[in-house]
Nucleic acid binder design. Structure first.
Lengths: 234, 234
DNA sequence: TGTACATCAGTGAACGCGCGTTCACTGATGTAC
DNA sequence: TGTACATCAGTGAACGCGCGTTCACTGATGTAC
């Protein structure tokens, strides 16, 4: 029976390995990650790493799960500290936290939303739960706004295409989203609109055109909520 | 003096090399591209490729330029063949062609808008012109709609933040966009909104949620134009 | 508290593999008369 | 049209490099009495 103390130290080394991995991905891209480079970075031989991760793919999976959880943490933190709980401002704060996390953790964001790493396939049963955790923060707030009447889905978003609605219901039941199909639908629409800005900023495609992306993003968040049917000013 | 016939054959081999490169990137990701694998693919030794491209980086640059030009070709083709020249429907046809090209050429799209290839930096003076070519198709149509009054920038898009306006003017002068700052601004707003859908579809993040992305995208295009201030129905 | 023992973290060497780029070369192809 | 020559596409070998994973091992650390 390995003592808790021993297990803690093992966990510490695992953390050290992941941190080295993140540093290296920041430098060489997510596809440039290598066990040998990590081993070099932490002064260990490559073979030593196999005491902590069964293979490079296992390590990548751990990094992806960490990334989704860190994103979810950031969103939850923004939700808790935002002024005006239950207001639209709380939602905008969370949406701004989404972009901010992406920009402060570009490597992790690329790992979860950029090009997949060649030869690696994420085991869905492991990666999906933390994805849901993060997205739930956003759609949960939308649900609140809908229920309190601060948000009332405006045309054309008051109508969900029937096939989409069926799929959303399936998702809600299977993955346990604690929200209505309407909230999920509005969440997805908003997600797709904001995701584009983040991706373009991440790879420097948009800065030459509009300069201060943070301001642009904030404006787009507000426009988005109005378009979706926000009843109040922010 | 190399005859035209000789030059044509060289160009043919260059094309063969690029096609093999695209096949390989489709299989192993943009970061997995290798000269040796290309050489194997076309039954040549690695060293032979240096008669056609000075280095792997030169080849990547050629692939990127090709991709931007192919995208611009697709947009121009859509513009020419669209029903109702000068109408909003022509613009929606071009915007749908944008997504369609991305989905039928995922590797090329990832090459130009996805994670950069580790260690490679695109020479801007070479890659920028074909970027402008493509984007000009979209903003050119927006300009037409603005001038004919079919589109009138609706609030809040009737106001361009002054710093953004200044930057857009610089861009228009330096890169020779044949449009107004207003058209460019609306183009950028639309671009960011649609880009997110395409990126999420490309890596399969959105299909599980909404299913038929093509229909979703088309709806979003129409909603976008209405939000920007379209005066007519589509 | 002190000792005997087991665990297992990390070593070191090796496996078979792939990579970009260089260089001297050969022989087919194209050119010039 | 036929011949002599030059070009240069593609070969073959080599350079020094990095990769993931395996295996037998050693010795420090932690455990049990």
């Amino acid at each position: 029976m390995p003592s808790e103390r021993v297990e803690q130290r093992r966990e510490g080394v695992r953390e050290e390995i992941k941190q080295a991995a993140r540093r290296l991905m920041a430098e060489h891209g997510t596809a440039g990650l290598s066990l040998r480079a990590i081993a070099r970075e932490i002064n260990m031989l490559p073979s030593g790493l196999y005491h902590y991760y069964g293979s490079l793919d296992d390590l990548i999976t751990a990094l992806i799960v960490d990334a989704f959880n860190a994103l979810a943490d950031a969103l939850e933190a923004a939700r808790e500290t935002a002024a005006g709980p239950g207001s639209a401002a709380q939602l905008t704060a969370v949406l701004e936290a989404y972009r901010r996390w992406a920009m402060t953790h570009p490597t992790d964001f690329q790992l979860i939303y950029g090009n997949p790493i060649p030869g690696y396939a994420a085991p869905r049963e492991i990666t999906v739960p933390p994805v849901i955790r993060g997205f739930s923060v956003i759609v949960g707030l939308i649900e609140n706004l809908l229920q309190s009447g601060v948000l009332e889905a405006a045309p054309p978003y008051d109508v969900i295409p029937p096939e989409v609605e069926a799929r959303l219901q399936t998702l809600i039941e299977r993955d346990g989203y604690p929200v209505s199909a309407r909230a999920l639908f509005l969440g997805v629409v908003g997600w797709t609109q904001l995701h584009g800005i983040i991706m373009l900023e991440m790879f420097n495609h948009i800065q030459p055109v509009i300069g201060d992306v943070e301001t642009f993003y904030r404006a787009q968040v507000i426009n988005l909520l109005k378009t979706l049917g926000l009843k109040t000013a922010i």
